[in-house]
Write a protein that binds this DNA or RNA. Structure first.
Lengths: 192, 192
DNA sequence: CTACTTATCGAGCATTGCTCAATAGTGACG
DNA sequence: CGTCACTATTGAGCAATGCTCGATAAGTAG
């Protein structure tokens, strides 16, 4: 099925910004259903109703396109996990809420992390930003390298446990919540 | 440079088992330097000094080859992390020793985890086996689902922290060791 | 209406995963 | 030692895919 009305102009010219948004949007959508490297240019172009060539007009290479998509996913994630409260409880509650409702984009970002160096870099930056959020919520001003590393590692723990809970309903929400806050407290206390 | 002596027979026939081992060995080696999906059949064949076709004679498809390579990496990992001692201290010490010396294969396995469904499955199995090892060392006979999940998540924490330590020397070995054992004790105690 | 910019396309090239029929080591058996 | 069956091995070739390049037309300015 074509994008526009039937018999529409064969060349529906659009403004570059909107095209870019559209293409990246398609990438984000596809990223939730399959791993990054299984998204072919042809797929994206077909879904957008444009030719392969046009995609290369906007993104010099497939990797550049991927990178922009993953960056967009990262930005979404960071915006969505921004916590309102200050306490660890609020933080963890918000995190669990997010994972419960939108674990698919999270997994998507996760999965792309290992595909390439640049993807891993974006993933690291994302986790670093999350670490900052946690440290802020904990009111830790000048964390040592060890504390930062420990909190970053706790994020890995939290991601794993929360995803397991969201996908396989392992334990109750309260149990998971308690496990997360307890571990964070313990880890931070131990690390300094 | 050719594999054998110069002017050797053009068709150096080998036994299937050795060929398979050789090919998988090449895959394992390449896996430490680049992400899985960047390993092309041509690369492997060239390095082995054979034609592309022969690789498809041994592995029906590229994915099957990949899967066998990743499985081999997983087996290596499990063999190398097998702990001798019984206490948590022994366990963590062995884990740190392993990560310190051979974090590259570990990272390689890590990275391949997100590339595809089958890779993720192998990764899950590997982590499940590691979880069993930990539970055994902890002398926990009949763990609840929650305890299993928590220990599995602790593995994510341990991997992250240990890799950070091995790569960027974050904190001393004793500090990391204490962080790991402390967290594990705390988590297991909380989870039941 | 004209001219200029550029979004858009189609054709075509190189790489790569994969197939298939043909070839040639190698071991088994006489 | 010779012959034969088995199969490891290859080369040619197809389809998909990343990517290039020149041509074209949809807008915009004048």
């Amino acid at each position: 099925m074509a994008a526009g009305s039937p018999g529409a102009k064969r060349r529906a010219r659009q403004h570059p910004d909107e095209r870019r948004k559209q293409l990246i949007g398609i990438g984000l959508e596809m990223l939730t259903t399959r791993p990054l490297h299984q998204i072919t240019i042809d797929d994206v172009a077909a879904k957008a109703g444009i030719s392969r060539s046009l995609l290369f007009h906007y993104f010099p290479t497939k990797r550049d396109y991927y990178a922009d998509v993953v960056r967009a996913a990262s930005r979404r994630l960071l915006r969505a996990t921004r916590v309102e409260g200050d306490t660890i409880d609020d933080l963890v509650a918000g995190f669990l809420n997010f994972i419960e409702r939108r674990h698919e984009p999270y997994i998507a970002l996760f999965r792309s992390a290992g595909t390439d160096d640049w993807a891993h870099e974006i993933f690291r930056e994302t986790r670093a930003a999350l670490t900052d959020q946690v440290l802020t919520a904990l009111a830790i001003e000048q964390p040592s390298e060890l504390v930062r590393a420990a909190v970053g590692a706790w994020l890995a723990y939290a991601e794993e446990l929360a995803l397991e809970w969201a996908q396989h309903h392992t334990g109750t929400r309260e149990q998971v919540h308690a496990l997360l806050t307890g571990a964070l407290e313990h880890i931070v206390r131990s690390a300094r």
